[in-house]
Amino acid sequence: MIHVEGLTKYYGEHAAIRDLSFNIEKGEVIGFLGLNGAGKSTTLKVLGGAQPHEIRKRIGFLPDVPPLYDEMTVGGYLDFVARLRGVPAASARSHVIEAEKKTSLEAMDEQPISSLSHGYRQRVGVAQALVHKPKLLILDEPTGGLDPVQIVEMRNLIRQLKGEHTVLVSSHILSEISQVCDRLLVIQGGEIVAQGTEDELAKKLGGGGAVELDVRGSAQAALDALQKVEGVTGGQLLRLEGELASLRVDASPELRPALVKALVAANIDVLRVDKAHGRLENIFMKLTGGKAS
């Protein structure tokens, strides 16, 4: 559906993005990841704003700052945007109602945009991007500045949009969008440094993931028992408090049952088994050259 090849953009001498190439299939939800200043917004701006005239009808774009006219009402604004993007005047209203329903803005129809909170403004921003039912939705940091509840709502919203639209969504926080994305593109210094699903990215970086365990008994015995399980590439002791030990094992989370069995066989009590926290962040940090947490 989208084929980007050799996209480069200079701001003066400085190249914000360099020779960027990627493909997006129809109906996919793509996560665009990178730290601030990596070139995400620049890329999306080019994709969203600098298209030939005929293509723009089929694109819905939410820039990093929602482009809202403060003095308009939510309904009036969405109506304006719908007609600006080629929806006939007669059916504009029904488009607006549908967009408001999708973004839970029905109650705000008559409200002036200037009176809305940040979360609602962001929602109006998403609503304007999808009011004309575009094939491609480009959302630049839709979760920026939202509180945790609103982030979950935004995620659910993006999940709903899947199927109906092809979605390109950017964020600098991996965990916020990785759950809704089919594929991730990681951008760093204006170049794509990795792409693929979350698991593919993890594999590519050597680590098949990690598992954390709390056990009671000898920590050394537990580690020894775990190391013998096939697929485990390493392990370490994180904390030791009396009888309780926290361990971290480098192994795919799918190995969790085997790990528990091995511990039970070694007569060690298992108190907790979990996917290692911060796994996503670690992948991301490694890719973007930041310091792992």
Binding site: K45, G48, G49, A50, Q51, H53, E54, R56, K57, I59, F61, P63, V65, P66, P67, L68, Y69, D70, V81, L84, R85, G86, Q128
Partner: peptide, 14 residues
């Protein structure tokens, strides 16, 4: 200033 020009730029408007 307010960024609404992006809206016009991304719409099918000359």
């Amino acid at each position: 200033q307010t960024g609404t020009l992006q809206l016009l730029y991304s719409s099918p408007v000359r």
